[in-house]
Design a protein around this nucleic acid. Structure first.
Length: 344
DNA sequence: AACACGGGGCC
DNA sequence: GGCCCAGTGTT
């Protein structure tokens, strides 16, 4: 616990946001909120949290759900492995823990999708266990307060910051301490425009002392973005059926649905063939650029009218109006919303 | 240790 | 256009 820790507590009690998962002690709700908020801002995750607690009010109902229903509810939030792991962990709680949520850091770590951060968060918030959370906010706050230049995305940095975070942890109220540190990072000690003038610990911040706040935290590696050219095919037959497929295996959007797709190394002006079948009368419907964290997708949506839907392995025919019943990537949602072929 | 994994908001 | 977000799992 650092000297003048009370300044952060006082600030937190005055300025904390009123968030629904802060007023509960049920570990299921806290765990659910933490999974949703991984790499996700509160404003984006909040509506999903409300949907999930309404649809799955307890771990038993979540464990009993179909994975596809969970993915559908997760649609649009991204990092879909979180939804798959969420569902898997709920079943783990039922089978491995007799339906009772694990009540300590080490047991929580055994759940799919629960790493060091989430185990510390749930164990400290729900059970008062003295484990410090180390998330993006904590990295930033600590690196500035103590002017620590070790890259936060290195193994050494993770170790160093975790040790420091646990050293300054207020063991008498670890949950409040953890929330206060994160809230300070989210509302005041922000990445680009830190509000140092209103910061409660401005007086003990080493970076503020020499105006180097923006030099922290230090990160190494910049990620490389891969450019891909995707050509989606809308096979539309006379009965208004289309072909879709479930994305399997590893890669983006695992478990979600999209259309038959031809990937090319460069942009193309026509699509003449699909899986060995020669195509005629393929028309370009829509062209979009879709940005993901690691990929820049240059996408063309092509339409092909046929009398009958082709029988192709791995694809299923559905009425075009049923498309929205399936969990879809935002790219496909975007197309469905913009293309005239999906208007009633 | 390096990399894959979404989507949205801010500057 | 780059960076970041209540990170985790895989290789």
């Amino acid at each position: 616990m650092i000297d003048k820790q009370y300044l952060i507590f006082d600030w937190y009690s005055e300025n904390k946001r009123n968030l629904p998962w802060r007023s509960v002690k049920d570990p299921y709700y806290i765990w659910l909120s933490e999974i949703i908020l991984q790499q996700t801002k509160v404003d984006q995750g909040l509506p999903y949290y409300l949907k999930f607690i309404k649809c799955y009010p307890n771990v038993k109902s979540l464990a009993a759900a179909d994975l596809e229903s969970v993915l559908k509810l997760w649609q649009g939030l991204g990092y879909y492995s979180r939804a798959r792991n969420l569902h898997s962990a709920a079943k783990q709680v039922m089978t491995d823990f007799g339906g009772v949520f694990p009540d300590n850091y080490d047991s929580l770590l055994s759940l799919k999708g629960v790493g060091e951060y989430t185990a510390a968060a749930v164990s400290s918030f729900a059970y008062g266990e003295a484990k410090a959370v180390v998330d993006g906010n904590v990295f930033r706050v600590l690196s500035r307060l103590f002017k620590i230049a070790t890259p936060i995305n290195s193994t050494k940095g993770k170790k160093e910051f975790t040790i420091l975070a646990n050293e300054i942890l207020d063991k008498s109220q670890p949950g409040e301490h953890n929330q206060a540190m994160m809230e300070l990072g989210a509302l005041v000690c922000k990445p680009k425009s830190p509000q140092c003038e209103i910061c409660p610990v401005q007086g003990i911040c080493l970076a503020f002392a020499d105006k180097t706040q923006l030099d922290y935290p230090v990160k190494e590696k910049k990620l490389k973005v891969k450019v891909r050219h995707l050509n989606y095919l809308l096979f539309l037959d006379q009965n208004n059926n289309i072909l879709i497929r479930k994305r399997e295996g590893q890669g983006i959007w695992e478990g979600l649905y999209d259309f038959p797709c031809v990937e090319t190394s460069e942009s193309v002006d026509e699509v003449k063939e699909f899986e060995g079948v020669t195509l005629k009368n393929v028309f370009l419907d829509l062209e979009v650029k879709h940005i993901l964290t690691h990929q820049k997708l240059m996408v063309k949506f092509w339409v092909h009218h046929k009398k009958d839907t082709p029988k192709t392995n791995g694809y299923m025919a559905i009425p075009i109006g049923d498309i929205s019943n399936f969990p879809l990537p935002q790219l496909i949602v975007r197309y469905v919303n913009e293309s005239s072929f999906f208007k009633r």
